[in-house]
């Protein structure tokens, strides 16, 4: 059974079956990544454009690897080197790209809803690689894959997302996806970075890390975006670390080992202490590996069939 939609715009409203299908399919691609020749001919003849209006190194690289390992032809288009600087609208950019006979578009954009907009103006399959503070579905899928790989299941687990929840597309996609899969989800951070009424999404809120640590199996630690430092969300990095930094000392107070996820890049000794980031309970590097497999799965499921 193919996916319900021909685009991957977000995990909001995606069915449990579809998420399961993507995660199961990714298992096959993890095997491909272990081969001497890590490439299959599946998307031969398909052309994919990576349309990045916001700078990104790891997500773009991960997508590009996934595309190339499926034998697709890949075109990269980034804002720094593009006509966007010259004032072109998204719609015009998209239409120009479409005339080049592109089959799929992977897009990151600063505006929430940009991927959705694009799916209405061009015929290619659209994959959202991050739209503003809205969604980043493949990141949440690879987080879920990594958790499932470690625990053998998702249902019944307890996951807390900690950090800047208000500006995080990773947090929102994770909340939607994890809730659908039957996970108990909570968020944790300074009050200024937790959106009002987030409880409506069915999550618990912790304002103290110590309270979260008591109940969770997994902590998904978000990056503190240093570029937001000149805004008064919290007084200083030092204070953030003091109250919300995940340290060995804090984790030792939990009764069971807590698995650590982080979407990267890590600010060592800010949101996550270096020894925790490198510990055996940290799956950060596993996430990077699984990211390629999960993106291959999404590309395969959207790019084949009629």
């Amino acid at each position: 059974m193919p996916l319900a939609s021909r685009h991957l715009l977000g995990l909001e409203g995606m069915s449990k079956n579809d998420i399961q299908l993507i995660l199961d399919t990714a298992t096959s691609f993890r095997e491909v990544l272990e081969r001497p020749i890590k490439k299959v001919p599946t998307l031969q003849g398909k052309t994919i454009v990576n349309l990045f209006f916001e700078s990104s190194t790891r997500t773009r690289t991960s997508f590009e690897l996934a595309e190339r390992r499926l034998s697709a032809d890949v075109v990269n288009f980034s804002a720094e080197s593009s006509s966007v600087r010259k004032g072109e609208t998204l719609k015009d950019t998209a239409r120009n790209i479409e005339m080049m006979k592109i089959d799929m578009v992977v897009m990151r954009h600063a505006a929430a809803g940009a991927a959705h907009f694009l799916s209405n103006v061009i015929g290619a399959n659209i994959i959202n690689a991050g739209d503003g503070a809205h969604e980043h579905p493949t990141q949440a899928l690879l987080d879920m894959y990594t958790i499932r790989e470690k625990f053998g299941k998702l249902e019944g687990l307890n996951v807390c997302i900690i950090g800047d929840i208000a500006h995080s597309r990773v947090a929102l996609s994770n909340i939607y996806g994890l809730k659908t899969m039957g996970v108990t989800v909570s968020v944790c951070g300074p009050k200024t970075l937790i959106p009002k009424e987030i409880e409506r999404l069915g999550v618990d809120v912790f304002y103290r890390v110590e309270d979260a640590i008591k109940v969770v199996d997994v902590l998904n630690v978000l990056r503190i975006q240093l570029e937001r430092q000149n805004r008064p969300y919290f007084p200083s990095l030092r204070e953030y670390r003091q109250y919300f930094g995940i340290t060995r000392e804090r984790l030792d107070k939990a009764e069971r080992p807590i698995t650590i996820l982080h979407p990267g890049p890590v600010n060592r000794d800010v949101e996550l202490s270096a020894d925790v980031a490198d510990s055996e309970h940290s799956l950060i590097l596993q996430q990077v590996l699984n990211g390629v497999a999960v993106r291959m799965a999404v590309l395969y499921l959207l790019g084949t069939g009629k």
Partner: peptide, 23 residues
């Protein structure tokens, strides 16, 4: 062997085969 990823009809096959994995 799961040969799905090497099939020559993936483009036109309306029912997308479920990957069972090569092992």
């Amino acid at each position: 062997l799961d040969i799905t990823l090497y099939r020559d009809d993936l483009r036109d096959n309306p029912s997308q085969p479920i990957l069972k994995g090569t092992d």
